[in-house]
Computed example of a mutant assay.
Amino acid sequence: MSETTLHVIDNTEGKRYEAALPQGTAYIEYRPVGNALMLTHTEVPEAMEGQGVGSTLVKFALDDIRERSMMVIPMCPFVAAYMQRHLEYADLVHPQQRGLFGLH
């Protein structure tokens, strides 16, 4: 699954980044906390797991948050793991919190 075939939106009313798929909706829930978004949960339809949908959602969310000059609190283990593999996003986490999420 590539980013070009997955249309991700920020559903501000539902407080989640989401992508509609034939198998269901994939999403990352968030909560605004000051100048940060706490990413709390990622859900991908079971039939689409392991096909890059979750990673595409996380990348979209992190790029959007960066563009909005906000910070990230990656409470979702999937998001934190993605950020550990893609340290170019570590600067989105407050320096005093990076160690909590394995972002060294």
Rank of each mutant, 00 (worst) to 15 (best):
residue 21 L to S: 11
residue 85 R to N: 14
residue 46 E to C: 09
residue 97 Q to H: 09
residue 99 G to K: 09
residue 34 G to H: 06
residue 47 A to M: 05
residue 84 Q to F: 03
residue 54 G to C: 13
residue 68 R to M: 03
residue 98 R to Y: 01
residue 81 A to L: 09
residue 97 Q to K: 14
residue 99 G to P: 01
residue 61 A to P: 15
residue 87 L to A: 10
residue 29 E to S: 12
residue 54 G to P: 11
residue 102 G to R: 01
residue 69 S to D: 15
residue 20 A to P: 05
residue 58 V to P: 13
residue 95 P to N: 04
residue 62 L to Q: 08
residue 30 Y to T: 12
residue 85 R to Q: 13
residue 61 A to E: 08
residue 33 V to A: 09
residue 65 I to Q: 10
residue 46 E to L: 05
residue 42 T to Q: 08
residue 100 L to K: 06
residue 22 P to A: 01
residue 19 A to G: 11
residue 17 Y to N: 13
residue 75 M to E: 06
residue 5 T to H: 08
residue 65 I to T: 13
residue 96 Q to D: 15
residue 42 T to I: 00
residue 81 A to E: 14
residue 76 C to M: 02
residue 27 Y to K: 09
residue 30 Y to E: 01
residue 66 R to F: 00
residue 1 M to V: 10
residue 91 D to L: 02
residue 7 H to A: 09
residue 9 I to P: 05
residue 50 G to K: 05
residue 24 G to R: 12
residue 1 M to A: 07
residue 83 M to N: 11
residue 12 T to R: 11
residue 73 I to C: 06
residue 18 E to T: 10
residue 90 A to F: 01
residue 92 L to R: 01
residue 23 Q to G: 02
residue 55 S to R: 02
residue 74 P to T: 04
residue 94 H to T: 05
residue 26 A to K: 03
residue 6 L to M: 03
residue 60 F to S: 02
residue 47 A to I: 00
residue 37 L to M: 09
residue 2 S to K: 00
residue 45 P to G: 08
residue 63 D to N: 14
residue 22 P to S: 10
residue 18 E to H: 10
residue 58 V to E: 14
residue 17 Y to K: 09
residue 88 E to P: 01
residue 19 A to H: 12
residue 30 Y to K: 04
residue 34 G to I: 03
residue 101 F to S: 10
residue 91 D to I: 00
residue 56 T to C: 03
residue 27 Y to H: 12
residue 23 Q to P: 02
residue 99 G to D: 15
residue 1 M to F: 05
residue 31 R to K: 14
residue 66 R to W: 01
residue 1 M to I: 12
residue 30 Y to F: 04
residue 6 L to I: 12
residue 81 A to Q: 11
residue 90 A to V: 06
residue 56 T to K: 03
residue 43 E to Y: 11
residue 74 P to Q: 13
residue 29 E to G: 15
residue 62 L to E: 15
residue 5 T to N: 14
residue 22 P to E: 05
residue 27 Y to T: 12
residue 32 P to M: 07
residue 49 E to V: 12
residue 88 E to V: 02
residue 14 G to P: 09
residue 7 H to P: 04
residue 79 V to M: 13
residue 10 D to T: 02
residue 42 T to V: 05
residue 15 K to D: 06
residue 7 H to C: 09
residue 60 F to K: 03
residue 68 R to C: 14
residue 86 H to P: 13
residue 11 N to L: 01
residue 72 V to S: 08
residue 91 D to M: 10
residue 48 M to V: 08
residue 61 A to S: 11
residue 60 F to V: 01
residue 104 H to D: 15
residue 69 S to Q: 15
residue 103 L to Y: 07
residue 64 D to L: 07
residue 93 V to N: 11
